[in-house]
């Protein structure tokens, strides 16, 4: 059985270490907050200007002046701090955030990521994604291994406009985990989802990986 969205988030949460400052993207990465391992204490950064993001508010504590980067209402914690957008991205671009977990449309075998634009179709913008992949120490991409038409999203080269070049350290898909220890090395399969065979992964991967 390939991993579900929640399984992928749970696996991504294993990458969080005690004391980390963490930025989670929108979509599956947001679910990672529900799976932080016991005994691991992390501080979540929200790039609109907050460290120490708390859970969603109860209906009677909603504050329109307190939202996350997905524009959802949230709450503060005892450790929380607020700051302006330039300071927020000083944290991100200055390498002070330990890990970024983000969604992807395509990943290349060289660690490039595309996740912000489909020419002619989707005009939304990159928000903080380009800053995150350029500045955060470790970037983990979470995505389905193939698109709805069954085509591989793990490719020799991204065909969509890039968000960043050679910046992804680990890819978690519904089929398994792919990681590379050094920036230039090939990705290799480090885990398979339960019941998933290597042959299936090979058949669904266009990127050239280190198959071991």
């Amino acid at each position: 059985m390939p991993w579900t969205r929640d399984d992928m988030a749970k696996r991504a949460a294993q990458e969080l270490k005690d004391g980390f400052y963490v930025n989670l993207g929108i979509g599956i990465p947001t679910l990672v907050a529900n799976h932080i391992p016991d005994g691991v204490d992390v501080t979540l950064q929200s790039e609109n200007g907050m460290l120490g993001m708390g859970p969603f508010p109860y209906a009677d504590e909603v504050d329109p002046d307190l939202i996350n980067a997905g524009k959802q209402t949230i709450t503060e914690l005892r450790r929380s701090s607020y700051f302006n957008s330039a300071e927020s991205f000083a944290m991100i671009r200055g390498g002070h955030i330990d890990i970024s977990i983000l969604g992807a449309m395509q990943i290349s075998e060289g660690g490039d990521i595309a996740n912000w634009m489909i020419p002619g179709k989707m005009v939304k913008g990159m928000g903080g994604a380009m800053d995150l992949v350029a500045g955060v120490k470790r970037c983990v991409a979470v995505m389905d291994h193939t698109n709805r038409a069954g085509a591989s999203k793990f490719l020799p080269q991204c065909t969509l406009p890039l968000t960043g070049r050679n910046c992804i350290d680990m890819v978690i898909t519904d089929l398994g985990v792919f990681s590379r220890p050094e920036g230039e090395a090939k990705f290799r399969v480090t885990e398979l989802a339960p019941g998933v065979e290597m042959d299936e992964v090979k058949a669904k991967t266009e990127a050239d990986l280190d198959w071991g």
Partner: peptide
């Protein structure tokens, strides 16, 4: 102060 994504917990 309109809210875009009102998200609450029970």
């Amino acid at each position: 102060k309109r809210i875009e994504q009102l998200t609450v917990r029970e």
